[in-house]
Design a protein around this nucleic acid. Structure first.
Lengths: 235, 235
DNA sequence: GGCTTCTGTCATAAAATTGTCACCAAATGT
DNA sequence: ACATTTGGTGACAATTTTATGACAGAAGCC
């Protein structure tokens, strides 16, 4: 479980607990703003993935901060987990009403915390759904994670799928092997550039059917890299 | 307030109270069954709109009866209000967990009882019946809680049923193990993601008959998760 | 309380994917 | 034409991912 930034609002103990548990925090902050407006400002600056919001804040009301977060476009999509000191049903309901994604009752077990965070972050990835891309006789559907050539499903490995998806969303443009590694493999892996060649080959092969050869859509740009283009429609 | 039938379980005083209050009972019954099974049978016969379930029953446990009611398709949708003698938090939580619609602490005022009943019955109008889903030779009927392959009933565990139901209502789309855990198990449980694999296996096996193998409808999406798709019709 | 079924987790087997190489083919340059 | 560079291909061993059988504890059932 990794979260690029987690912002802890007014709860040092929670921070310690999370670190102990092994949650990988790229950064965190313990808010000590004197009012909801300041707190909101800090959150906007930090751009965390997740906010643990203590209901019982010393100065300002957690409820007001939550409302403010939900009102602002910049912070509207933030995942907010509310911490309630006791099993206070009223606060809980009120909080969920205003738009908290979840709540945890203190004291909470680290297992529970982790489970909730995981669940919340999983859920967030489900929110958006990508449209399927279609070009020539080729159709790529991100939802079902499949590729068709004229309604016939194709078979390919995960890397080939990602590669094709990248190409289809970046048509008519040449990419070097290095760029492809960055975009498809990720910028922090080290693999030989020639590896790209092999996967291009595999993708091309996967794009062949008895009727058509859509592998032709992937053109090699000698001395540079590869390009996905429709100017050579799959034969 | 009218209820065609109200069934009182093991609480004469409550009946008297309700009648005194003016609740229009089209009929009522005071259960004196010696065990949960008999009680369940009587309830099935009576088809009441509402069950007032006393937690402290002399012979059988109210909890078990409640569970039984929720498990049986015939009684699953019944409105159940739990009566707890004292403000017993544990029982209350346990009861709501198993699926009571509400609870009332004894002694209760007639006003409160009426209010709860009203609220509950309002809520109930929202409940709708689910239609059975059919795809390929597979038919899933939520009402009877059963699955057929060409009229032949299949046998599977509760989790497998829920999993299949989710898949059949979300076809042609890949889901990660985490998403499945959220959707089928619930977002607040923490189990290993590998557990999904095992249940997928069990479901696939359950979907096999001598004639067909509908387990093929569940496809694995390597590196991602699973997908329910008809493009590979059960052989 | 005894008995059966269901569940989650492991350990292990099986299968698919991946990154590299070595080697061949095509293109480029002189 | 020859030498050199760049891309295409098949093979392969390591690694990762999934499938499967076994099992103990939990939950349900009579």
């Amino acid at each position: 479980m990794t979260a690029s930034t987690i912002l802890i609002v007014d709860d040092e103990a929670a921070i310690r607990e999370m670190i102990r548990v092994g949650l990988e925090l790229a950064g965190y902050e313990c808010l000590e703003a004197s009012n909801a407006q300041d707190a909101h400002g800090i959150i906007v600056d930090q751009r965390p993935d997740l906010v643990l919001l203590d209901w019982m804040m010393p100065v300002t009301s957690g409820l007001e901060l939550l409302r403010r977060l939900r009102r602002d476009d910049l912070t509207r999509d933030l995942l907010v987990i509310m911490l309630t000191a006791k099993d206070d049903e009223d606060n809980r309901v009120q909080g969920l009403d205003v738009g908290a994604d979840d709540y945890i009752t203190k004291p909470f077990s680290s297992r529970e915390l982790m489970a909730r965070i995981k669940a919340i972050m999983r859920r967030s990835t489900t929110r958006e759904q990508e449209a399927s891309i279609e070009v020539g006789g080729l159709k790529l559907d991100p939802a079902s994670h499949r590729v068709f050539v004229d309604t016939q499903p194709l078979d390919m490995g995960p890397t080939e799928f990602k590669l094709l998806k990248f190409f289809m969303t970046h048509q008519e443009r040449a990419y070097s092997r290095g760029q492809l590694l960055d975009q498809v493999w990720g910028s922090n892996v080290y693999v030989e550039e020639r590896t790209v060649d092999v996967h291009i080959r595999r993708l091309r092969k996967a794009l062949q059917t008895d009727q058509r050869d859509c592998g032709l859509l992937i053109q090699t740009v000698r001395g540079t890299g590869y390009r996905f283009s429709t100017t050579g429609v799959c034969a």
